[in-house]
Amino acid sequence: MSQSQEAKAIEVSDIEYSYGSTKAVRGISFSVDRGEIFGFLGPNGAGKSTTIKMLTGQLIPRSGRISILGMAVHGHSAEVHQRIGVCFEEKNLYLQMSAEENLRFFASLFGIRRPDVKGLLERVNLASRSRDRVSTYSKGMRQRLMMARALINEPDVLFLDEPTDGLDPVSARAIRTIIREKAHEGTAVVLTTHDMYEADELSDRVAFITEGRIHAIDTPENLKLKHGSRSVTVRRRMRDSEVEELRLELDTDTFSRKLAEATASGTVMTIHSEEATLEDIFVEVTGRGLE
């Protein structure tokens, strides 16, 4: 096994970056395994984009070290870029060109002689409009084309910035399916998103970042277990026909007894289990919301 095959997909060690006197990123460290989907969550201005720019070689960190597939990003930029795919939040496509021309051009930059343009466009439901100029596309269509472009070189590491932003539910689901498939094939995926449902559904691990610092990194499940509370709500009709609602904390010693009591008296109408959302956990951990 070669060194790059042994290495983690992404290793970030204590990186820092400042815009003038403003510190955007303050000593961030994390790693991402091959085949892992890593959610990067934080409000606007938290340092997500700056971190992604450093990871993709657009910015050089003031200090710290970044390696992608065992290669230092700065020093092996062409080799690293050959093996990554980036889907930007900004829809930076060539509007005067068709979807097919856009993909063929980017494929040529990767040295791919016969790119599977048709297959990719079918995968993102753009095959029927492949020869239309991108300027005639809707926001959602452009987003899907961005996704196809990020996959043109079959990357080993995929950076996705708000990949389902502006998409209808069906298209968003299709994109999520592609992300899962790529991860299943061994591609490491770094996902930045404001959509907590999406992050929760897709990510193997998430990192909470605010003010340039990571506050927590773990699986969504573990974060909820550590920082959130689970409960069961029982709605029952009492003998006097009144409806009563009981909220029982799940992670307590008395839960089973209280649940038995609640279901024994009166007629049970509904029982709902509830757990904290990732957004709740984010607020709990960072002390602020995602706005």
Partner: peptide, 14 residues
């Protein structure tokens, strides 16, 4: 302005 320069420079092209 359109950001396509960034898109190109995260490929092997410099």
């Amino acid at each position: 302005e359109r950001g396509t320069l960034t898109a190109v420079t995260v490929t092997p092209a410099s």
